[in-house]
């Protein structure tokens, strides 16, 4: 007889999953976290959001490392120097990386996958782009290095949000 047999069935460290109604029987307290905030966008991002309303992409130049920072910042995180100039960019961009998302926020599988990724704007270096959606393409057409352009919401629907851009689509030749 082994030691295990002597003490009954082997201990299962995984136990058994709790059912929802079993959870209700355990003494517990329910609470909400009523934490609400209103963050100032700041000097640089306020201008960026304002320009989105105008259908324009704007950045800030760091004279030290010669990078145009998009989204704009009032200081360069690499040089630790103030940025010096506002620079309008054409808005066209290149896909830096992407992923095709098949799972929604509640962890359910979705039929129409969501195309997400980061883009680097023409006129700015590859390491300071933004994240966004892709559209007007099949998932299998999406490639790293692909030239894309923003699709804007109609002017009267823009509110100064990153969502004023609906998505990026393949650039017309």
């Amino acid at each position: 007889m082994t030691k295990k047999d002597k003490f009954g069935p082997p201990f299962n460290p995984r136990g058994k999953p709790l059912e929802a109604n079993e959870m209700e029987k355990i003494p517990h307290i329910r609470a909400k976290a009523p934490a609400k905030y209103a963050w100032a966008a700041g000097t640089a991002m306020s201008r960026f959001l304002e320009e989105l309303k105008n259908g324009k992409i704007i950045g800030r130049l760091c004279a030290q490392c010669d990078r145009v920072l998009v989204p704009p910042r009032m200081f360069c995180e690499r040089c630790f120097k103030p940025t010096t100039e506002w620079v309008y960019l054409p808005g066209t961009a290149v896909v830096e990386t992407f992923s095709i998302s098949y799972i929604d926020q509640n962890a359910n599988r979705i039929k129409e996958p969501i195309l997400v990724g980061t883009v680097a704007f023409d006129g700015a270096p590859p390491d300071c782009g933004i994240m966004h959606y892709f559209g007007e393409m099949k998932p299998e057409e999406l490639k790293i290095g692909m030239p894309v352009e923003p699709v804007w919401k109609p002017q009267n629907e823009r509110v100064g949000s990153i969502l004023d851009i609906k998505y990026f689509r393949p650039r017309k030749k």
Binding site: A40, A41, G42, T43
Partner: peptide, 9 residues
């Protein structure tokens, strides 16, 4: 209040 800057600035 400091509405003119964000926390980073």
């Amino acid at each position: 209040q400091t509405p003119e800057v964000n926390w980073k600035e």
